[in-house]
């Protein structure tokens, strides 16, 4: 499910799966309305993504769709060293 990633100086990045890399996301004003229409819906598919991760001493990569067949809680929070 998760594989260890190579140690290195580059900061790994993730992103959405199955969608073209849209530079539009970095724009300021237009994206606000775009995000409002992109709000996810209950009962619908969760957007798939890959993300670099830290897990029990290892740097790994996580892909949401690898967890099909299990229950998943996905939690976002504003920042490390704050409360959750």
């Amino acid at each position: 499910m998760v594989q260890s990633s190579k140690a290195g100086c580059a900061r790994p990045t993730g992103g959405l799966v199955g969608q073209p890399q849209a530079p539009a996301q970095d724009q300021q004003a237009p994206s606000a309305t775009k995000e409002a229409t992109q709000m996810i819906h209950v009962g619908k598919q969760a957007p798939d993504f890959t993300a670099p991760a830290y897990h029990k001493g290892e740097f790994t990569a996580v892909k949401l769709s690898d967890y099909l067949g299990k229950w998943v809680v996905l939690c976002f929070y504003p920042g490390d060293f704050t409360f959750v």
Partner: peptide, 29 residues
């Protein structure tokens, strides 16, 4: 990028809001 797709990224502040999603074994929210 992921937070924006889930509708909880605050682009102005540059951080994610406290979003919590329960996803079932079929991948549905």
């Amino acid at each position: 990028k992921v937070g924006a797709a889930y509708g909880i990224y605050d682009a102005e502040a540059g951080v994610e809001n406290r979003g919590r999603f329960i996803i079932d074994p079929d991948g549905l929210i």
